[in-house]
């Protein structure tokens, strides 16, 4: 079973993303911010990461840069899921190595299409 890590400080977003992915047979792990996400990544295999941008303790772009420094997760696809729609923010995400940028609110089928397209085999 493929495992996906959801990083968002909003419990309702973690629930909605979790509901969407679990319904399609994915295993889901949750983290409340970037620091928590780095803790959750150690010691287990994650096939894809979905992260918010604006979070306390460690924001999504910093988390993305940190993830790219971990050898085991260097090639793991990261999808940014955020209310930020400005092009300069998207450019920051692209430069840091994100594979996709989804603007909230998302439609579940769009989220699933992106996940199925990007998830590692």
């Amino acid at each position: 079973m493929k495992t996906i890590l959801i990083v968002d400080d909003s419990i309702s977003i973690r629930q909605v993303v979790g509901m969407t992915l679990k319904g399609q047979g994915f295993d889901v792990i949750e983290a409340v911010d970037g620091v928590d996400a780095l803790k959750k990544l150690t010691g287990q295999k994650v096939h894809l990461i979905i992260s918010d941008v604006n979070m306390p303790n460690m924001d999504g772009i910093t988390l993305l840069k940190e993830i790219k420094q971990i050898p085991a997760y260097r090639f793991t696809p990261v999808v940014m899921l955020t209310t930020e729609g400005a092009e300069e923010k998207k450019e920051q995400g692209r430069a840091a190595g994100a594979k996709a940028w989804i603007t909230k609110p998302f439609r579940p089928e769009q989220m699933l299409a992106a996940v199925n397209k990007l998830i590692l085999p």
């Binding site: 209310t83 909230k104 579940p108």
Partner: peptide, 16 residues
């Protein structure tokens, strides 16, 4: 339900 799931995300936006 898919529509509802989308609309339920309003809380995250209004909270921000």
């Amino acid at each position: 339900l898919s529509d509802v799931v989308m609309h339920l995300q309003f809380q995250d936006r209004t909270s921000q």
